[in-house]
Nucleic acid binder design. Structure first.
Lengths: 246, 246
DNA sequence: GTATTCTCGATTGTATCCAATGATTGTTTT
DNA sequence: AAAACAATCATTGGATACAATCGAGAATAC
């Protein structure tokens, strides 16, 4: 079915032959971030090899790295799939992200360089414009860009890399558990308010605001216990017998 | 020279053929934790393949996973080495660990099960006995066990796995930067005090105590600016005289 | 004596081959 | 018709072969 994400992907980089797995990892991560590659999607090694024009060796290395980052799940002798965390893990991911991104906000608050101010302001401006024009895809992209920029600019690189991973996992669980009616999650003015606190506010207030922003995001999801409609498609594909027991 | 860590390792599991890379990853992680495998050590694929009796395929998968966890560094076309973070990254690792382990302490404080109490108490008891008997290796092992147990029992599994990785990276930088005179880092009664707070104390106090404990640990290292003798040997590629330097 | 270049060995990167395992489908039995 | 069983196919796990690259040391030039 949903196989068209490959078109976007292969277009990106045909010429790269050196250390090809990095390119493949990047492309798959990007596809997951932008929700072109929904949770539960099968990722057979041969198909990916055909798509990217490399052998299974390279694909396997890429898949191993993605599994280490919890973006895909690999069970022995079974096809790798985009991860589909359950509700418990979803809450844990949000809690961890609040901790890490709150700390990063705290570290950066009041210490933004001029360039960082400008870049953040421009991303947020673009986000609001996209929202007003109803360009949902663009809006999501910019919203992600805000957080990715913070992860990238984190003065503590260890925390920054952790946040990069958590943002990816958050994208996955948002795709899984977003309520039916809404096409994506949006919190008006949250990012603009955050920028103000990052520029001037005291560190602990920036931290607190960031955590509240992430909690609001989590609250937009439908995380009621199991009985929900959600997938049965992506979940029943998962081999772990936790769900399939009946 | 320092090739005897293999003896300890291969003894562990000769018979395992199924999903062998997990075993290899575990063995190398354990060797790094116990400092039998110092930072900068070369890890050639063929040598490891010979040692574990498997092909390079399996070794490569194991190395890829270790690199994803920042335990080894892989540069293109060069031998993988045990990571040797610089001083800046060392401070970042400690800061991240304070954040994560402090939160885990906070989450567990006042909520220990009876079994958890018993296990922690027994580990700490064993640690103190080892210290009194001068059994340094045993003492370090128990000290690690305390923190690994917390990582393992963390109610938030995402944070728990993060802590597991951070403990490993902490072991690496301790091996790199421990002061010459001391054989290992020891903080008397710190673990016992922590246990008391985990059992009874309020959450934020347990968090604060844990952070202080980790800061004290960091303070035992020699993290003065670059001019220290330390590496240039282990970083620039000389495999074995990293320790002989002093 | 020092610096430069060249060659060779060690090591990794990628592709391909075979074995093993799991899923699927069709068949048989009750 | 439903369930158990068997054969086939798709897919992964691991090993090996070959190509590409890097580093060390020798040979050479100045």
């Amino acid at each position: 079915m949903n196989e068209d994400w490959t078109k976007h992907i292969v277009a990106g980089g045909a010429g790269k032959l050196r250390n090809a797995d990095q390119h493949i990892v990047d492309m798959i991560r990007q596809a997951v971030l932008t929700q072109r590659l929904p949770p539960g999607t099968r990722l057979p090694e041969v198909s990916l090899g055909d798509i990217f024009g490399v052998s299974r060796s390279v694909i396997r290395k890429a898949l191993t790295r993605l599994a280490a980052d919890h973006i895909i799940v690999q069970h022995p002798n079974q096809v790798a799939r985009i991860a589909a965390p359950d509700i418990v893990e979803t809450r844990e991911i949000f809690a961890a992200r609040r901790l890490v991104e709150g700390e990063i906000a705290s570290l950066m608050a009041g210490k933004l360089t001029q360039a960082q101010r400008k870049n953040l302001a421009s991303i947020i401006e673009e986000e609001q414009q996209a929202h007003q024009h109803g360009d949902e895809a663009k809006r999501v992209e910019c919203s992600l860009a805000v957080h990715r920029y913070l992860a990238d600019q984190s003065p503590n690189r260890v925390l920054g890399i952790m946040l990069t991973d958590l943002i990816l996992r958050t994208s996955i669980v948002i795709a899984l558990y977003k309520r039916a009616g809404m096409q994506a999650c949006y919190l008006d003015h949250d990012h603009a308010d955050l920028l103000l606190l990052l520029e001037n506010g005291p560190a602990d207030e920036a931290c607190h605001r960031m955590r509240a922003h992430l909690s609001a995001l989590e609250a937009l999801l439908d995380l009621r216990a199991q009985e929900t409609h959600i997938d049965l498609a992506s979940i029943l594909g998962v081999p772990s017998d936790a769900n399939a027991a009946h």
